[in-house]
């Protein structure tokens, strides 16, 4: 009985581990998330403003560089963002590196098309002062397969990136669809409560 339970437990655990996310890819095999968000009743200019407000929040970890590009004629926005990925089995958030990515937003009346792509891993290392810092000049595309010895850690990084991208898409959709109003919400207190 115990043996059977143990085997079931092992199978469950391995299945849970095996559920690595499958990234969508473009023509060249690059990981990409792209879709169109429909926002009824909002014109191109207003959507552009909302998109600008959202995309300018993105930045690369520990960098002061401004990568925001706006093209008012073509109604497109570009910025670079990043997320910190962590070591496998670390006690508390020991940094493995940073994954940088590009976000492109294109606008039409009532439509916003997002593209998140170009995921590049930059490893971090603890420096002589005990702080984690980027190893400059070392960049690995997230699509690249790594050696068997480091597969588990790489799969963990991919999973973190996939989940982060899903959250990013959700927050972008919320920001684009959000209806701003100058009027404060009116609360009428009723006696019948």
């Amino acid at each position: 009985m115990c043996k059977a339970l143990f085997i079931v437990f092992l199978l469950n655990a391995s299945c849970a581990f095996a559920q690595n996310p499958i990234f969508p890819i473009d023509d060249s095999g690059k990981y990409i998330f792209s879709d169109v968000i429909i926002v009824s009743g909002v014109d191109q200019a207003d959507l552009f403003k909302k998109g600008e407000k959202y995309i300018q929040q993105l930045k690369i970890h520990n960098s002061t560089q401004n990568n925001l590009h706006k093209n008012h004629e073509q109604h497109t926005l570009f910025n670079k963002g990043s997320l910190v990925v962590h070591n496998f089995g670390s006690i508390k958030n020991s940094i493995s590196g940073v994954v940088e990515f590009d976000m492109i937003l294109e606008f039409k009346d009532e439509k916003c098309r997002y593209t998140i792509t170009n995921f590049i891993f930059n490893p971090y290392k603890r420096n002589r002062y005990g702080k984690f810092e980027s190893i400059s000049g070392k960049y690995t595309p997230l699509e690249k397969e790594v050696s068997r010895l480091n597969k588990k850690e790489w799969a963990k990084h991919r999973k973190e990136v996939y989940n982060y991208s899903q959250d990013l898409i959700k927050s972008l959709t919320r920001a684009i669809s959000h209806k701003e109003t100058d009027q404060p919400k009116k609360i009428i207190k009723s006696d019948n409560w």
């Binding site: 070591n87 670390s90 006690i91 508390k92 958030n93 020991s94 940094i95 603890r126 984690f132």
Partner: peptide, 12 residues
């Protein structure tokens, strides 16, 4: 006086 983000204690 005006502080921003906080990050948790990191152990490595």
């Amino acid at each position: 006086q005006g502080e921003e983000e906080e990050s948790g204690l990191k152990i490595s």
